[in-house]
C-alpha cells in the first residue's frame, strides 16, 4: 500500500497528465465533428483491415459447402440443358413429322443415374425414372458420349438397366464406314475397354476407327457412338476380335437418356412368328 502511495506521489504529474489528456480527448471527440470523423474513420480503417485479413483465412473454411452448392447448381443446369434439348428435338421432329415418324419411331426420356457400379462382372445401373415416366423393358440407355446399357427391370418410379459393363450383355455394333457387323461384350476388368467379337474374317481394321450401333437389335437406333478401335485382341483364340475403347465414362455416369423403339412389340412378334415357321 505504501508503495502504491509512493508511486502515486512520485509520478503524480504523469498520472494527472494522463487523466486530463483522456478528458481532453473525450472533449475533442464529443464536441468537434471534424475530429470525431477523423477518429472514427481511422478506427474504421484499422478494423476494416483486420476484418479483411481474417476473411482471407476464414474464407477457406466455407469452400467445401460452397463447392457442394455449385455442384448442385451445375447438375440442375445440366438437367435443364437436357430438358431444353429434348423440347427442341420434339419441336424439330414435329415440324418434319411425316418423314421422321416412319424412319425414327424412337421416344426419349431423360433420367439420372442414382446408383452405378463398375467393379463387378455384372454391373447394373439404377435410374430415377420408371414406368410412370414411360420407361419399359428393353429400352436403350445412352448419355451424351455414347451408349450406357439396356433397361432390364422397371418399377413405378425407378428402373434398373444392365450396364454395358456386364458380361451378359451383347450389343450389335458396326464399324463406321466399313459397315462390318460385330457383337460388343465386356468381360470384366478395365471399365473403359470392351471387346468387339464375331467380326468378318477377311476384314482388316486400323486403330482409331469409330464403332457405332448397328440398329439391328431395334433397341438402339442406328449410328449411336460406342467407342473407337484400340487394337486387335492379343488372345490367339479369337482372331477377329478387337479391343474397343468405350466413349462413355462409366466412372462419371450421371445424366442419361432412355430411348425406346415404339415399334419394338411389332418387331418382336414378327420375329417370333418367323421362328415358329422354321
Amino acid at each position: 500500500m505504501d508503495n502504491l502511495i509512493n508511486f502515486i506521489v512520485k509520478h503524480g504529474a504523469w498520472i494527472l497528465f494522463i487523466l486530463l489528456q483522456t478528458l481532453c480527448i473525450v472533449l475533442i471527440y464529443n464536441d468537434n465533428p471534424y475530429q470525431r470523423s477523423v477518429l472514427l474513420s481511422s478506427g474504421n480503417q484499422m478494423t476494416g483491415s483486420i476484418y479483411k485479413t481474417a476473411n482471407l483465412v476464414t474464407g477457406y473454411f466455407y469452400l467445401r459447402s460452397e463447392n457442394k452448392e455449385i455442384l448442385q447448381k451445375n447438375i440442375e443446369l445440366e438437367h435443364e440443358v437436357f430438358r431444353l434439348r429434348e423440347a427442341l428435338n420434339k419441336q424439330v421432329s414435329s415440324s418434319i413429322a411425316y418423314d421422321t415418324t416412319v424412319t425414327a419411331p424412337y421416344q426419349t426420356i431423360f433420367g439420372e443415374v442414382i446408383d452405378n457400379s463398375v467393379s463387378k462382372t455384372h454391373n447394373y445401373i439404377l435410374i430415377n425414372k420408371g414406368s410412370k415416366d414411360g420407361i419399359k423393358k428393353e429400352m436403350g440407355v445412352i448419355n451424351q458420349n455414347g451408349i450406357v446399357g439396356i433397361v432390364s427391370m422397371v418399377s413405378e418410379s425407378y428402373s434398373i438397366a444392365i450396364s454395358l459393363l456386364n458380361a451378359k450383355l451383347h450389343i450389335s455394333c458396326k464399324v463406321k464406314g466399313d459397315g462390318s457387323i460385330g457383337s460388343l461384350t465386356w468381360q470384366g476388368g478395365d471399365p473403359s475397354f470392351a471387346l468387339l467379337e464375331e467380326l468378318p474374317r477377311h476384314t482388316r481394321f486400323s486403330p482409331g476407327d469409330t464403332i457405332i450401333t448397328s440398329g439391328f437389335s431395334a433397341i438402339f437406333p442406328e449410328g449411336i457412338m460406342v467407342g473407337t478401335i484400340d487394337k486387335p485382341s492379343t488372345n490367339k483364340q479369337d482372331l477377329n476380335t478387337l479391343i474397343i475403347k468405350l466413349s462413355t465414362d462409366f466412372y462419371r455416369l450421371k445424366n442419361v437418356c432412355v430411348i425406346g423403339n415404339e415399334h419394338i412389340n411389332e418387331i418382336r412378334e414378327l420375329e417370333k412368328e418367323a421362328k415358329k415357321n422354321d
Binding site: 503524480g12 486530463l20 489528456q21 468537434n32 475530429q35
Partner: peptide, 28 residues
C-alpha cells in the same frame, strides 16, 4: 510542483477552449 503545473496548464488551456470554441484542443 509538477502536478500543480500540469493542473494549472490544463485549466488555462481549458478556459481558452471555452472562449475559442475548440473544446479540448488547447487544453490537450
Amino acid at each position: 510542483g509538477k502536478s500543480a503545473q500540469v493542473l494549472i496548464s490544463f485549466v488555462i488551456g481549458f478556459l481558452l477552449d471555452l472562449f475559442s470554441n475548440s473544446p479540448g484542443m488547447n487544453a490537450s
